[in-house]
Amino acid sequence: MAEQKQNIVEIRHLYKSYHRGSLVVPVLFDITFDIVSGEFLALMGPSGSGKTTLLNLLAGIDKADEGSIRVGDLDITTFSETELAHWRANHVGFIFQFYNLIPVLKAIENVELPLHLTSLSKRERRDHAEMALRMVGLEHRMDHYPQELSGGEQQRVAIARAIVTDPTILVADEPTGDLDRVSAEEILAMMERLNSEMGKTIIMVTHDPRAAQRAKILRHLDKGYLTDDDSQNPL
């Protein structure tokens, strides 16, 4: 992987605050850092330090007050809502703590969902979704509804949904936060494989040191500040 050193994400002087009525709550201060292509980054920090906020900004589901976020060749801070939606559909895969599958859709339909925003044919959508489910080892659960699956299985479906569009980056907010240890290990192993075998760039927010160990690089956020510079994961 020769181009591994190429930056896939460049964040420059990012500020973000929330408004609660007349009260302004600053959350992120002057965040600047890069993520190289093929990275597996874990973002850690105490509760309320702004991890989710930062992840949301670089995944294009929230707007920064100041600063720029470059993903690939595009500065997404200049995008309109519609452009952002289109960009997310093509470039970002999402994994959440609570899986967030659509309850009325079967596993395979959940995985297919993002493909409905592409120009793929019905047949191609089905093929892609089946392949993604096979990659997470759930092809035999294709026709199950989310409530018929365990937490770990639901999270695997969510991973399949996140990778089915072959996005530029994968973002995961506490992907193991709601899982027991065994399932958590499974999910982490799977993400590790996505990173090492398929070269997916992953940005993962976590509380769990065991989860952080799987990442190649660690970042710490404290009260809205990045507190370290490119510290390599001791592992």
């Binding site: 939606a85 997310r88 093509n90």
Partner: peptide, 12 residues
């Protein structure tokens, strides 16, 4: 939550 997910995925 469902609607938020769909919007996240790029639905309008």
């Amino acid at each position: 939550g469902d609607y938020a997910i769909m919007k996240t995925l790029g639905f309008g």
